[in-house]
Write a protein that binds this DNA or RNA. Structure first.
Length: 456
DNA sequence: TCCTCTTACACCTTTGAATCGT
DNA sequence: AACGATTCAAAGGTGTAAGAGG
């Protein structure tokens, strides 16, 4: 609980600093991104968000919805989203909480979702919130539909990229900023593990309304091959209940269904449910304590740092990396933007404790570095090879040559901690990194598959 | 045996074309 | 002819349960 309150304090500070710094609305250094539905995200985050991924592709829920300010009204921008691994682990759901189940699998092809309105003037982006409703996640590494490919049972975090570019061709030479939000971190799953998350989704997702309403829910529950449950409830229902119990769905089969109570339970938790878990009900709690962090402060650090992807730019400016490791580098990057050609990156990469953990780090250095933006090299190289084709491919829907995500020069808009009371303002924030923040682990990622996709 | 993943299913919302009225 | 409102069917999103596979 202590760490939650720390988060809140910090985040409110960040918000205020952002706001005060935003006096110059059109100064690019003060572009701010605000996460809409922050409360909803927060609700999910507190339970440990799970995102279903399927072979044909599944939308996110909650879906990413942001509003942006501080853009130049007449300058054109491209806005993109990608997913970065939060750490190098694979997880499993065990005894009502997530546990580390081993090292992460090698990254699937990295893809980027480009908002369909891109490119559009700043005024367009600022006049209303930007929805990424149609972004889809898949676990199909051979996916041909341009969905973002993730591994199941891994943790990811969406990153938003704001790129000033007149067209998609010029994205790679453009100035851009990267934002992410701690509460959008999720675990990708092929089937829901945490019943609280399931219920929360059912209660909030209109498409799941059929599971929400009392009658339908009951009907639905027995829908498949299980009218027998009604006819002969003893056997079938018993087995259902058994499974239900074993999977800890305490409230699911119960009828009548009370949405309010359910929601309240989901959000607040009952005492019984809470006891075995962390005080704030985060299923991460146990696992984090056990595997990731030893103290609350480290929890804070971890969640803070899962953020922005800053770029690995060593391909062009290797010498610059020397300055990355120190927290002030973020501070100095107050400009928060860099051009592709000239900047030396901040390398956020992975939280210290996670990188340095005595992990079975086999292959991690080059293959599975979380929060790394390896595409820089790929892009440079590939664009030299096939510039025309590449740029053209930007406009294709599902072009396998997708260079867009291969940009370099990503900078950190820098992430702010969980926005607990409200939305999330993201700006460069010195001091967000804990002492000992580690910027290393900037190994080459050049073998990383070179086809991320734009989808719209 | 356990765990993860896939698939078919029923229910629901969203979308867009067709129709009608002004 | 142009525009807006309404209707309706198709498309697509949702979690569940059973079962396959490792």
């Amino acid at each position: 609980m202590q760490y939650i309150s720390e988060l809140r304090n910090t985040s409110s500070m960040m918000v205020s600093s952002t706001v005060s710094g935003a006096t110059d609305q059109y100064n690019q250094g003060h572009i701010t991104l605000i996460l809409e539905n922050s409360d909803l995200w927060k609700s999910f985050h507190e339970l440990g968000t799970e995102m279903i991924i399927t072979k044909p592709g599944r939308r996110m829920f909650p879906h990413c919805n942001v509003s942006v300010s501080g853009l130049l009204p007449y300058a054109k921008y491209v806005i993109m989203v990608d997913m970065v691994p939060v750490d190098n682990f694979r997880y499993k759901w065990n005894k009502e909480q997530w546990e580390v189940a081993g090292k992460a699998e090698p990254h699937p092809p990295c893809r980027t979702y480009i908002h369909p309105d891109s490119p559009a003037p700043g005024s367009h982006w600022m006049k209303q919130s930007i929805s990424f409703l149609k972004l889809k996640l898949t676990n199909n590494t051979l996916d041909q539909h341009g969905h973002i490919i993730l591994h199941s049972m891994h943790r990811y975090q969406p990153r938003f990229h704001v790129v000033q570019a007149d067209d998609l061709y010029s994205v790679r030479w453009s100035v851009f900023q990267t934002f992410s939000f701690a509460e959008t971190t999720f675990t990708s799953v092929t089937a829901y593990q945490n019943s609280k998350i399931t219920k929360l989704k059912i209660d909030h997702n209109p498409f799941a309304k059929g599971f929400r309403e009392e009658g339908t829910h009951g009907k639905r529950y027995r829908a498949n091959k299980s009218l027998a449950c009604l006819e002969n409830p003893t056997k079938k229902l018993r087995s259902t209940e058994k499974e239900t119990e074993s999977r800890s769905y305490p409230d699911f089969p119960r009828l009548p269904y009370d949405p309010q109570r359910e929601e309240q339970d989901a959000l607040m938790g009952t005492k019984e449910e809470l006891v075995p878990q962390d005080e704030h009900m985060s299923p991460w709690g146990g696992e984090q304590d056990q595997n990731l962090h030893n103290e609350t402060a480290m929890d804070f650090c971890s969640s803070e740092q899962m953020v922005p992807g800053q770029v690995t730019y060593h391909f062009y400016r290797p010498a610059e990396f020397g300055r990355m490791p120190s927290p002030p580098s973020c501070q100095d990057d107050s400009v928060d933007r860099h051009s592709f050609e000239s900047r030396a990156t901040d390398v956020a990469t992975v939280p210290d404790q996670e990188i340095t953990r005595p992990l079975p780090a086999v292959g991690m250095g080059s293959q599975c570095r979380p929060l790394d933006f390896s595409m820089s090299q790929n892009m440079s190289v590939s664009s030299k090879n096939k510039p025309g084709q590449r740029t053209h491919s930007l406009y294709g829907h599902y072009n396998t040559e997708q260079p867009l995500s291969q940009w370099s020069g990503v900078i950190s808009g820098q992430y702010s901690g969980p926005t607990y009371p409200h939305s999330h303002h993201v700006t460069a924030e010195p001091g967000m990194h804990p002492p000992g923040y580690h910027h290393g682990n900037v190994a080459d990622w050049s073998q990383y598959p070179l086809f991320s996709y734009s989808c719209w």
